[in-house]
Design a protein around this nucleic acid. Structure first.
Lengths: 111, 111
DNA sequence: TTACTATATGTCATATATGACATAGTTTCA
DNA sequence: TGAAACTATGTCATATATGACATATAGTAA
């Protein structure tokens, strides 16, 4: 239950691998972070393609602009549930979700 | 923020579609639930293939047997983060995650 | 400059998830 | 039978996520 070792470093342009050792993250932890970052990017992409502002998207999600900003920034306080459900609200298909998953999960040894 | 309309009904053999109307779930909400149920099934599959008990898996996850049981039962109190990170700890690949995603997300109209 | 729009960041009260525990039910094997 | 291993379910204290708000920063146009 010490999943809070994450860092906004990773969201701010750091390669996860380089931070992983520094923070002592397990492979699975690192993979999860990469996955969520990938979903974050997908969300921003989709929103922008639709020409929506964060405020407009927040309204559709019954959330707030600040939370949308945090979703897109890969903030550690954002759950995968929120990211995925937001993508679904934006009409993301199973293929698109799967694609984001693939590009977000690095290879790691089986535990 | 009224996502708590879920039901264990869905986990207990009910088709999501039939419950969706009853609970007044949106398409995106229903898709998210289906997705999580699919991940639940994947988790049980993987665990059993490895010949692990819930207790043993719980130890690897630094969690408890009861939580593992809830994960596999599709309990509403279980987050997608926990499901995915558990699958990753069990060595699930990107392909396998993507597959679970695909089979879990039903088609729904773009919003 | 000012005013406006969009996005980012920090904080907080409340909602939800989590691990742990107790206990009940189930399966398996003598 | 019965005990042992496994799984399900309910509860709770604590941890984490959430929406909302304030405020800051960045860009744009007048």
């Amino acid at each position: 239950m010490k999943k809070s070792k994450r860092a906004k470093l990773t969201a701010s342009g750091w390669a996860v691998g380089s931070v992983q050792d520094f923070l002592g993250l397990s492979d699975a932890d690192a993979a999860l972070i990469e996955l969520k970052l990938s979903l974050s990017r997908s969300l921003r992409d989709r929103r922008q393609r639709r020409g929506l502002s964060q405020v407009e998207l927040a309204k559709r999600l019954r959330s707030s602009q600040s939370r949308v900003a945090k979703m897109e920034a890969g903030d550690p306080s954002v759950s995968m549930d929120l990211l995925v459900s937001s993508l679904l609200v934006l009409g993301a298909s199973a293929d698109e979700l799967a694609k984001a998953i693939r590009s977000g999960v690095g290879r790691h040894a089986a535990a």
